[in-house]
Simulated assay, not measured.
Amino acid sequence: MMGPGYFGGFGMGGGSLMMLIIILAIGYLLYLAFNQNQNRGNSQTQPRQSGSNEALEVAKARLARGEITVEEFEQIKENLL
């Protein structure tokens, strides 16, 4: 009465095995999605820090040339950090 194809051809554990594979695949895709978002977040913060360092160097040079006052330099530095 119960032939080899009764439970999907894999015996009684065939359905459980397929469900486990599906759950693992969904988990892996979720892992990739969250890991990719974290990598993007790190890459976006790096240029900002180097950009603020460059802006601070420009402000220092402007202060040295006398283009801005010390108060203006302090305000720029406060805004950057």
Rank of each mutant, 00 (worst) to 15 (best):
G11L: 10
E67D: 13
I23N: 09
P4H: 04
Y6P: 02
A25T: 11
N42R: 14
M12I: 11
N37R: 12
A25Q: 10
K77I: 03
T45V: 15
K60H: 09
N39V: 01
N53E: 10
L24S: 07
V58N: 12
R48G: 04
S43A: 14
S50M: 14
G3H: 09
Q38A: 10
Y31I: 15
G27S: 08
V70H: 02
G51D: 06
G13E: 09
I68Q: 00
A64C: 00
F73Q: 00
Q38N: 11
Q44P: 08
F10W: 12
A33H: 10
L56R: 12
Y31H: 15
G15S: 13
L81W: 02
L29N: 04
A59W: 04
L32E: 07
L24T: 00
Q49S: 10
Q36P: 03
G41S: 12
P4R: 14
N39C: 01
N42L: 11
G51S: 08
S50W: 09
A64M: 02
P4W: 06
E71T: 09
A61W: 08
V58T: 13
Y6C: 15
I68V: 03
G41P: 11
M2C: 05
R48D: 01
G66Q: 08
G9K: 10
L56W: 02
I76A: 00
N37F: 03
P47Y: 01
G27P: 01
R62Q: 13
Q44I: 12
E54I: 14
I22Y: 00
L20G: 00
F10T: 05
E72V: 07
A25L: 15
P4F: 04
G66I: 06
G11H: 07
E78I: 02
R48S: 06
L29R: 04
A64R: 09
S43Y: 08
R40C: 06
F7G: 06
F34E: 03
Q75R: 12
M12V: 09
M1C: 08
Q49V: 13
F34D: 01
E57F: 00
I22V: 13
